Amino acid sequence: MTLRRLTPLAALTALAALAACSSKAPVPQDSGAPVNAVRVPLPENEALPPAPSGDTKPIWAGSPGGDSVRFGQPGGAPALSLACRQGVIVVTRHVVAEVGAQALFALQGSKRIVRLAVDATAVPGARGYLWQGSLPAGDPAAEVFDGPFVGTLPDAGKISVPGSPLVRALLAHCATHPATGAKPAGPGAVE
């Protein structure tokens, strides 16, 4: 009978001794990478755009026909572009988007705050899908582009854009060409 009482006591003593002697597992070092990061190899045969020098600032540039303007580093890919297509302003944020993704592009200008619905869209000449939305040129929400504005898009970060006479000229030009069958900004842009 005494053997049965000592056995559980001996087991507890052994467990306590093991717990006191054991060391903690080593903590893995933080590599600085996101926890679920996935490496995607870049194509080796495709040249990367030239890296901008530290003193160059992004600027607005216009197309020869005046139907589009783009904002970005000189000689590099645009970060944002606006185009007039039959009286509709097409806004493209040049950041890769997942197929089928939808979001609201929050735009804060000096005259308006607008949330523009954007979708992942295949854009000719661009790899993958980019964020793109549109609104009629005569829509009051288009005034957000009339001066400097800040845009925020999920997974694309924040972009600060200065005002430009090129943008104002595009808006004026596009407003004179009424949209054929364009829908009001209701679902596309919310103020």
Rank of each mutant, 00 (worst) to 15 (best):
D119P: 05
A17V: 15
Q29E: 08
V123I: 05
P34Q: 02
D55I: 11
S53C: 07
P74S: 12
P124N: 08
P140V: 12
R5H: 02
L107E: 01
G138S: 07
L135C: 02
S110W: 11
T13H: 03
G62M: 02
A10S: 06
R127V: 06
V38D: 09
V95R: 02
L6S: 12
F71E: 13
A117D: 04
F149H: 10
D119L: 06
L48T: 11
K57G: 14
I89Y: 02
A142F: 07
L104M: 11
T121R: 08
A10L: 15
V90P: 00
S53N: 09
A20Q: 01
V96F: 03
D146L: 07
A122K: 15
A117L: 03
P140W: 11
A103S: 08
L15R: 01
A141L: 03
G75H: 08
K24S: 15
P58Y: 01
P50H: 15
G128T: 03
L15D: 01
C21M: 08
A126E: 15
A16M: 12
Q73N: 08
G109L: 14
S134K: 01
A61H: 01
L104R: 15
V114A: 12
V91T: 04
G54C: 11
G54S: 12
L15K: 02
R70I: 04
Q102F: 00
F105Y: 15
E143Q: 15
G76Q: 09
D30I: 00
K111P: 00
G62K: 09
L116C: 13
P41S: 07
S31D: 13
S53K: 13
Y129G: 10
R115G: 11
A77L: 12
L12Y: 14
V69Y: 05
S68C: 06
L48V: 14
R127G: 03
R85P: 05
D55H: 10
V118E: 05
F145Y: 02
G75P: 15
P50M: 04
Q29W: 13
W131C: 06
K57S: 14
P8Y: 09
P124G: 08
G100S: 13
A97I: 02
P8M: 01
P140N: 03
A97P: 11
A142K: 01
A141N: 14
L82P: 08
V99L: 06
A61L: 03
A103C: 06
Q29I: 11
G75V: 01
F145P: 15
P58M: 01
R93C: 07
G54V: 06
A101Y: 11
S110C: 09
P50F: 01
A120L: 01
Y129S: 13
G32T: 05
P64T: 09
A126N: 07
V99Q: 10
A101H: 09
A11H: 11
W131E: 09
G76T: 10
S110M: 13
P124F: 04
D55N: 11
G75D: 03
A137W: 07
G128W: 06
G54R: 03
L130S: 00
R93L: 07
A19T: 12
E98P: 14
R70M: 08
G128D: 14
P8V: 15
A16V: 12
L48E: 05
A20D: 07
G133W: 00
A117Y: 02
S110I: 06
L48D: 14
I59C: 00
P136N: 10
A126H: 04
P41C: 02
